[in-house]
Design a binder for these strands. Structure first.
Length: 288
DNA sequence: AAGACGAAAGTGGTTGA
DNA sequence: TCAACAACTTTCGTCTT
């Protein structure tokens, strides 16, 4: 996955940055509202769901000149003026378009502040479009639905982002994001599998700047743990944190429980409980 | 002195009557 | 609508390195 805004190639499994400094082949601008969009749009830009008309519309130049650069006669000028007016009306005429333009810019903002890869942004935009089409936004906050779309997009792509992070980036309370999230899932008939601990592990090890094999060991522990049916009914974060802790210890990279608890957003107690269970079971298996 | 440990009470969200 | 409930957190005193 390529993230042009951050000029990175990002692994969609774990969010790991594979390469930096790509050439940006997309448009060099971003549009936050329709006016700005009109100023910056040009032919040949790639299609994207993040702009309300998918970046596909034509636009009439504002200078009153013809293709040869000659000034237009006054009757031509008047005609062009009328054409422009109509085009404006056609493009952002109804509430639908206006809503979309606003919401997509909000979604872009959230995604950027979380430095999410481009395809998450596209997915979130697509989800939002569906929501609008089904008239699910009526009487609801655009921001809330936007934030929820981003969250769903993350979950669908298996990127470990918590409600907290989304709520922080969008400055909308966790409760509201969660509510809208469930609402969208229900109304759009989406199914989102619960987070796998595995996905958290990669996130943690990135944030902890641990070496690659710590992550590998942690994954192995998780596989073993889930085979032992130890993962059901438990919060995936706690399990992932515990696995990371054990893996770090095994590879001689000793992390304190607090350090892991900090970035995993669980308490040391939870890590302790999980990892004690795991150690017990794993040792038992190994002694067979 | 810092980290790890564990008991006990508290919290917020889900479930089932 | 409400109480029971499971998972997790908070708090705090004690043990270990």
């Amino acid at each position: 996955m390529q993230d042009y805004d951050a000029a990175e190639i990002v692994c969609m499994d774990c969010g790991f940055v594979v390469a930096l400094n790509l050439a940006n082949r997309g448009p060099e601008w971003r549009a936050f509202d329709h006016k700005e969009y009109e100023k910056k749009a040009r032919v040949g830009s790639p299609q994207t769901f993040t702009i309300h008309d998918k970046g596909l519309s034509t636009m009439i130049d504002w200078r009153n000149r013809d293709v040869y650069g000659k000034k237009l006669s006054s009757s031509q000028k008047a005609q062009i003026y009328r054409l422009r007016k109509w085009q404006r009306r056609v493009r952002i005429s109804d509430a639908y378009e206006r809503n979309l333009a606003l919401a997509l810019s909000k979604i872009t903002k959230i995604a950027n502040s979380l430095s999410l890869p481009r395809n998450i942004l596209e997915t979130a935009s697509l989800i939002y479009r569906k929501a609008v089409k089904k008239r699910l936004i009526r009487g609801r906050s655009v921001q809330e639905i936007g934030a929820a779309s981003v969250y769903i997009a993350c979950r669908q792509c298996g990127l470990a982002r918590t409600l907290d992070e989304i709520s922080l980036a969008s400055s909308i309370s966790k409760k509201k994001v969660g509510r809208s999230y469930r609402y969208l899932l229900k109304e759009l008939n989406y199914f989102v599998p619960p987070m796998k601990p595995r996905q958290y592990v990669s996130k943690f090890s990135n944030q902890l700047t641990m070496q690659g094999n710590v992550e590998k060991v942690a994954s192995k522990i998780l596989v073993a743990a889930s085979e032992l049916k130890m993962t059901c009914g438990r919060g995936p974060k706690g399990i992932a944190a515990a696995a990371s802790y054990i893996a770090a210890a095994l590879t001689g990279e000793q992390m304190t429980q607090r350090e892991i608890a900090e970035i995993a957003q669980v308490t040391e107690v939870t890590i302790r409980n999980r990892y004690k269970e795991m150690i017990k079971r794993l040792l038992f298996i190994m002694s067979l």
